[in-house]
């Protein structure tokens, strides 16, 4: 579902990605770990079509993300680190607005169901977003992605700043999504959350994918040790 082939991206003298190749098949949650500036956000931005690679190709559900950006985007659900919504609109109105932009018209009942499915309390759906916590906004973000019925989900530090309960809820939500057959790529530096949520993990360093492994074969402690080893070398 997600294919990144030999991608290199430079910003002036800085090489953000160097010949990066990775693949996330249907039903898998892939965690991209790395320090600040490792290239995680650049990878996601290339897949989103906001950046063009200097060389290499990226595919979303078989569609080239650089050359056929609009079609590729139709298959993507995106959840940024901070889901900033319109503060004067309610959760349901925000969701309705984003759905309409995506060409989808849902009934209020359906919109409410989606929000509840993403973990938002029914009572909160009709409150203005300026009363929401970060976790609640994040849930609306997931609802926006979910309502789009995307095949691929890209998440950029989705659990940053969330309390443990909200993080756990996010993990289970992502698992639910992947179980439905979607491919999820999640960039983060939260080793614990990645280990808990993902099926596979890749460690990025200086724009290169230095290590890939299945989460089933490592514990959180081992993963932390491996990560630190790679960062120090």
């Amino acid at each position: 579902m997600i294919n990144v082939k030999n991608i290199t991206k430079r910003f002036k003298d800085f090489e953000a990605l160097s010949n990066l190749t990775l693949e996330v098949p249907k039903g898998e949650i892939y965690g991209l770990l790395g320090s600040n500036g490792a290239g995680k956000s650049t990878t996601i931005n290339i897949l989103l079509g906001f950046l063009e690679p200097d060389s290499g190709e990226s595919f979303v559900n078989g569609i080239n993300a650089s050359t056929d950006t609009n079609n590729a985007r139709k298959n993507i659900g995106y959840i940024p680190e901070n889901v900033n919504l319109y503060p004067y609109l309610t959760g349901i109105e925000n969701l309705d607005y984003f759905c309409k932009l995506a060409g989808k018209n849902y009934s209020p009942k359906k919109l409410s169901e989606i929000l509840i499915e993403c973990g938002l309390d029914f009572s909160a759906t009709n409150k203005q977003v300026n009363t929401y916590s970060k976790g609640m906004r994040q849930k609306v973000g997931i609802a926006i992605a979910l309502a789009k019925e995307a095949k691929v989900y890209l998440l950029d530090e989705p659990a940053s700043g969330l309390d443990p309960l909200a993080s756990t809820e996010l993990s289970s939500m992502l698992k639910k999504i992947s179980n439905r057959g979607a491919a999820v790529l999640m960039a983060s530096h939260d080793i614990f959350r990645v280990r808990e949520t993902c099926n596979r993990i890749g460690i990025l360093k200086g724009g290169e994918l230095v290590k890939e492994m299945d989460t089933s074969i490592v514990s959180t402690e081992e993963l932390e040790k491996i990560y630190i080893e790679y960062m120090q070398t």
């Binding site: 900033n84 319109y86 932009l101």
Partner: peptide, 13 residues
Amino acid sequence: ESGRLKLLVFQGV
């Protein structure tokens, strides 16, 4: 600045 622009553009606008 809020990052909402990506979300908006992402919906196909």
